[in-house]
């Protein structure tokens, strides 16, 4: 029985963890692997923590959710608290130790029941043109990164196999662009899992954002740079 890799990503609404998970799962599927992605969703409360569960493997995948993650990536201090149960003794734990920003979720997020769950329809042409683009891109314009983070308290980090701290937010803000924060994370996940080649992720990004990339090639460079930056951060630490 081939092992199924269990990945849990958690972050504040607007940090884009669901898009990371979605792209990851789609890339794995395109790569011929079995993949399953399920967001936690709900009538999101203001400032809710959003978790994405992804499993990738060679065999059919069982339950959509799991307790112990192989890779656990909480991206805010609250996400660290919220994902405590997913940290096991074999977990590789990647967290964001940036000090700059934490998402602040706007009021109107309340009542958006499918918040963070994007329904693209890959079989029709431009199927989502009529859907709210801010929801589709997985970066709902419902969050701003304005407040200063308290930072993750070291004593909150659970006991796991390996802990890797990456200042993704700081890098996004200072070196690239705040909006590619989640792409840095995507790169980090690829490095941590070693289950997919970088090219398949690039292809998945291309599929997802190709139109935007073509309209603005600088965007492609920015995203791929973020992807590689994230990869290096974790790869050098593994």
């Amino acid at each position: 029985m081939g092992k199924t890799m269990k990945i849990a990503l958690a972050g504040e609404g607007g940090q884009g963890v669901q898009s990371v998970a979605e792209i990851l799962a789609e890339a794995a599927n395109e790569d011929g692997k079995q993949a399953l992605y399920i967001p936690n969703f709900g009538v999101e409360q203001r400032g809710g923590v959003s978790i994405a569960y992804v499993q990738i493997g060679d065999e059919n995948i069982g339950a959509p959710k799991f307790i112990a993650a192989d890779i656990l990536i909480p991206l805010s201090p609250r996400a660290v608290q919220r994902t405590r149960e997913h940290a096991g003794k074999n977990t590789v734990y990647i967290y964001d130790n940036s000090l700059i920003q934490q998402a602040e979720v706007n009021d109107h997020i309340v009542g958006l029941q499918y918040f963070d769950v994007t329904p693209p329809n890959p079989r029709s042409e431009q199927p989502n043109r009529d859907l709210p683009q801010d929801l589709i891109a997985g970066e709902p314009k419902t969050a701003s990164f304005m407040t200063k983070s308290q930072g993750v308290r070291p004593e909150d980090i659970p006991e796991v196999k390996k802990v890797i701290a990456i200042p993704a937010n700081d890098i996004a803000k200072n070196e690239l662009h705040p909006r590619v924060f989640n792409v840095i994370i995507l790169g980090a996940v690829i490095a941590a899992t070693q289950i997919l080649p970088m090219d398949s992720i690039k292809n998945a990004l291309e599929t997802k954002l190709g139109a935007k990339f073509n309209a603005n090639p600088a965007l492609r460079d920015m995203n791929f740079k973020a992807l590689e930056r994230g990869y290096e951060l974790v790869h050098s630490a593994m």
Partner: peptide, 10 residues
């Protein structure tokens, strides 16, 4: 159920 509704798999 909601899990089946929202999750993605092949």
């Amino acid at each position: 159920d909601g899990y089946q509704a929202k999750m993605r798999e092949s």
